[in-house]
C-alpha cells in the first residue's frame, strides 16, 4: 500500500510541477511576444516623434549648448558607445538645463541627462556610470517594454502614423518617468558595470555616485529625483562594490578637466539667471 501511496504522491508532484512550468513558460512567452512586437525601426521612429515633436518643442525644456559641456558629454558617450560592440541604436545624448540630479532614456537610443547631475558628479567617470546605466535600459529595451505594457502596443503604433498632441504628451510623460521595476534596474546596473569595464572605466564609480546621492537623502529636496525613482540604493551600491573585475583590468582616466566642465555649467546657469532678471 505504501508503494501505491508514494506513486500517487509522485504523480501529484509531477502534475503540479508541470502546471507550474507551463504557467511560468507562458507568462514568459507573453512578455517576449510583447517585446518582439515593436521593431527597432519602429522604436527609432517612436523616439524621433517623442523627442522632436514633444520634448524639444516643450518651452520648459532648455538644452545645454555650452561647447565645453557638450564636448565633455560627447567624449564620455563616444568612449562608452565604442565599447558596446554591436548595437541597434545610434546613441544621442542631450543635456537639459535643470538643477535636477537625473537622467532618463527615451526610445531609439535617445538619452537625456540634466546639468544638475553633471554638477553633482565629482568626475567624468561618475557621469559615464550614469550614462552606461541609461544605455543599459536602452539596450534591454526597458522603455518600450514599459510603454507597451502601460499604454498598449496599438497606441504606440497609432502615434507613428500621426497621433494627436494629448496622446503624444501622455506617451512622452510615461516614457520620461524614471520608474523601472527592480529587475530592470538590476539589469541596467549589470549592463552598466560590464560596459564600464569594457570602456576601461572603474565600474565602482556607480557605487561612489549612488553613495553620495544616498548621503544627501537626509536633506532630500525636489532636485533629488534620481533617488526617489531609483529605490534600494544600498543593495545597488553593494552590488557595484562587489563587482568582480578581470585580474588584468586597468583603468584609463578621461583626459579632461572636470572642474572646467562644472564651471561652464555654473556659468551657463548664472547667465540664464541674469538674463531672466533683465
Amino acid at each position: 500500500m505504501k508503494k501505491s501511496i508514494l506513486l500517487d504522491v509522485l504523480k501529484i508532484t509531477v502534475v503540479l510541477g508541470l502546471v507550474w512550468l507551463a504557467f511560468a513558460y507562458f507568462s514568459g512567452k507573453l512578455n517576449t511576444d510583447l517585446d518582439l512586437s515593436i521593431s527597432v525601426a519602429n522604436e527609432e521612429k517612436l523616439g524621433k516623434v517623442l523627442v522632436d515633436d514633444v520634448l524639444l518643442n516643450d518651452s520648459k525644456i532648455k538644452l545645454e549648448t555650452n561647447p565645453i559641456v557638450d564636448s565633455a558629454v560627447q567624449s564620455i558617450t563616444k568612449r562608452l558607445v565604442k565599447s558596446i560592440g554591436l548595437t541597434d541604436y545610434q546613441y544621442t545624448i542631450r543635456v537639459i538645463k535643470s538643477e535636477e540630479i537625473n537622467a532618463f532614456t527615451m526610445p531609439g537610443g535617445n538619452i537625456f541627462v540634466y546639468s544638475g547631475l553633471l554638477k553633482f558628479a565629482e568626475s567624468p567617470d561618475e557621469v559615464a556610470a550614469v550614462l552606461a546605466h541609461e544605455i543599459g535600459h536602452a539596450e534591454n529595451k526597458h522603455v518600450v517594454k514599459r510603454l507597451a505594457k502601460e499604454l498598449g502596443v496599438a497606441l504606440l503604433f497609432s502615434i507613428l502614423s500621426g497621433g494627436d498632441a494629448v496622446v503624444l504628451n501622455e506617451v512622452a510623460r510615461t516614457a520620461t518617468s524614471t520608474v523601472f521595476d527592480r529587475e530592470q534596474e538590476r539589469e541596467a546596473d549589470d549592463y552598466c558595470m560590464s560596459l564600464m569595464e569594457k570602456a576601461k572605466l572603474n565600474p565602482k564609480s556607480l557605487a561612489t555616485f549612488f553613495r553620495r546621492v544616498d548621503e544627501m537623502t537626509g536633506d532630500v529636496d525636489n532636485n533629488m529625483e534620481i533617488i526617489m525613482t531609483h529605490p534600494n540604493n544600498n543593495s545597488r551600491i553593494k552590488n557595484a562594490l562587489e563587482y568582480k573585475l578581470k585580474p588584468n583590468f586597468k583603468t584609463e582616466s578621461f583626459n579632461m578637466n572636470w572642474q572646467r566642465v562644472i564651471d561652464s555649467v555654473n556659468a551657463g546657469d548664472e547667465k540664464a539667471s541674469n538674463d531672466s532678471i533683465k
Binding site: W20, A22, F23, E183, N232, S235
Partner: peptide, 16 residues
Amino acid sequence: SHEWSITANYKGYIGM
C-alpha cells in the same frame, strides 16, 4: 524586499 522581484517562476507558482 528590494532583492526580490516578480519573475516568471513566481507567476507560474501563483498560476499553479
